[in-house]
Design a protein around this nucleic acid. Sequence first.
DNA 1: AATGAATGAGCATTCATTCAT
DNA 2: TATGAATGAATGCTCATTCAT
Lengths: 198, 198, 198, 198
Amino acid sequence: MTPTRTNRKQQIIRAAKELFAKHGFKGTTTKMLAAKVGVSEATLYKYFTSKEDIYYALLEEKLQNIESYLPTSQKTSIRKTLEEIVVNFLEKNTDDVSFTKICLFAALEQNAYSKNFVQKLRKKLFTHLDKLFENWISEKKIKELEPDLLAKLFFGLLFYTLLLRTIFHDEKFSQYNLQYLAQHIADIFLTGVLNETT
Amino acid sequence: MTPTRTNRKQQIIRAAKELFAKHGFKGTTTKMLAAKVGVSEATLYKYFTSKEDIYYALLEEKLQNIESYLPTSQKTSIRKTLEEIVVNFLEKNTDDVSFTKICLFAALEQNAYSKNFVQKLRKKLFTHLDKLFENWISEKKIKELEPDLLAKLFFGLLFYTLLLRTIFHDEKFSQYNLQYLAQHIADIFLTGVLNETT
Amino acid sequence: MTPTRTNRKQQIIRAAKELFAKHGFKGTTTKMLAAKVGVSEATLYKYFTSKEDIYYALLEEKLQNIESYLPTSQKTSIRKTLEEIVVNFLEKNTDDVSFTKICLFAALEQNAYSKNFVQKLRKKLFTHLDKLFENWISEKKIKELEPDLLAKLFFGLLFYTLLLRTIFHDEKFSQYNLQYLAQHIADIFLTGVLNETT
Amino acid sequence: MTPTRTNRKQQIIRAAKELFAKHGFKGTTTKMLAAKVGVSEATLYKYFTSKEDIYYALLEEKLQNIESYLPTSQKTSIRKTLEEIVVNFLEKNTDDVSFTKICLFAALEQNAYSKNFVQKLRKKLFTHLDKLFENWISEKKIKELEPDLLAKLFFGLLFYTLLLRTIFHDEKFSQYNLQYLAQHIADIFLTGVLNETT
DNA sequence: AATGAATGAGCATTCATTCAT
DNA sequence: TATGAATGAATGCTCATTCAT
């Protein structure tokens, strides 16, 4: 594939990402997409066989390029590790809101392909996180609960925070700096909200 | 409005709820809707002025009828209170998955009306929850953090759990019984995951 | 089905017959068809599910209504019988050229459906003709050849004459009166072209 | 024109012949054609100015190269001559079904050009055949009928036999060997089907 | 000599909506 | 109250064709 050809494909995917995020799959028309890319609708079909094909390419690409929000280096403390996860996750996904939206649309629209995508995505997101909790449990550092339950509940805190910041446009959560949020989320998850004196 | 008229309106809204949940607003056609209700498409327009109108009526109705997941009676312990909230919330929303989906669609589709809806909905959901945490804080029962931050993080645990059970179709989370989930969520939120001995 | 509904369907089929005959299936657009009927394209789809559906309905209807070109009463002579067949066949099909054309298009375009149609049509055309020749053979009135071979060769004379008159626009054949043609065709088929004195 | 250029043109025409025969003019796309030739669509337009142009070139070429099915040498008997015509005609056209189909499509599609083509073709086909019958008539060998009427009716037998074998896929007619068919067709045309004793 | 890239016009089909009855 | 009949505008997609390279 010539470099131009790849570029055009990328252009289309990039434009599609924005539009699908804003209007969903059904809500995005090929006309809108062509206009955004600055080509004719016919041109779209020189690069992709169908609107669905563009959608799939978009999801597929995301699945490949998904960046880990997990710390690369071994952290000394659980707390630091969790804090870094929070910051990483929110940082990466705040910049690319469309991805979050597209994932949610995919989860909601529920055709065979998007179901598969969501499944793969969740696997990718949790494989490493699960392991982290497993290790901590086996090291007796944290309570002996099912590691994936812990991973998912922790992720729930992240995920909902992300939604508050990017989709629900919660004023407060949007203004908090990430460090501050990370500290509180990590703290609550580790030690709970009860007053120590209690 | 005659009772029949009200009934028909209700029938339409009920059918719309299912369809919008399954296919989104754009993905639901008036043809599908009419078929589901068992009337002609023309009849739809005797009761509502447009497809959007049906959507708005649906959201509005939900906003009125939203049932509190908060405990009605004063509970003795925070733990019991939180547990009851978890159980209530999951119970009510598991039965009515379409509502969750419609809310998410509304949040994603982001037109003026749905934005407004999401805002109102969140207000309704959080007003009482916020107060609960405020009280506990003033009673020094829990750490002195911003009450709405606490409320939202706690809600994040609930909400993500709901998504896992109803939209992401997480096998494990779907099988857990609600009591079990409630205990763990409440426990983690209150005391954290760290080993007490640490 | 209300009478109006039937009428519209019939109107569409009638218009389609003309257009498909003139331009073939591919060459006929739904726009042309709608214009000819005097309705919008959308209306076409209230009565038929697709362009193909219209085509099929058209063929199906023809298959039902196909009129026999065979003599109803028992003729005294073979010659009279054949002459009547020629006249009947040419008369019926000259009035309805579109049918001939559509059949030929169907035979040429060769999709699964039209293949089936052509097969059924040929069966309908030949079943009785075959029997006629069988009888004559068993009565020793004509040479002892395979009856269907005879039927088909005789039909070839008819069919080609029809093409000459309706599709190839052969001047002479178009001007001959049917009686004249019938006599010669029957005569040649019965006694051949050789001079009797030879 | 360089020899390569001629070759490419020929390649295109050959591919077009197959495709037009299978799908008709409208049913054949330039994409299909380019793919079959193994070049880009753009290349097609280096050799022909339009899709129609290819079609015309194709017909024109056929018109030039049409091979006579008439016997080259003077045959002793009419019977032998007719038999040879039948065999020749069926042999040549069975091998090249696409030609028959294209001619029929041309006759059906009825635009100015194809009308002209069909006319020329028929002239070519009948000029010599007509003469043959003229001669036989003047030699008093056959009945004194209009020679072109005879020629066309005889041709009808050939033509319908060809259709049965190539387009209608008549099982029996496809299996008969040509010699057998030729004998019967010639015999019937010459002496008729009536029992001699009658 | 060949083609990659592009497209305006058109295709069959569906949409939400209207209106006379 | 309900709907059969209708449609303008749009949808995803394909077509034959052009042109710079």
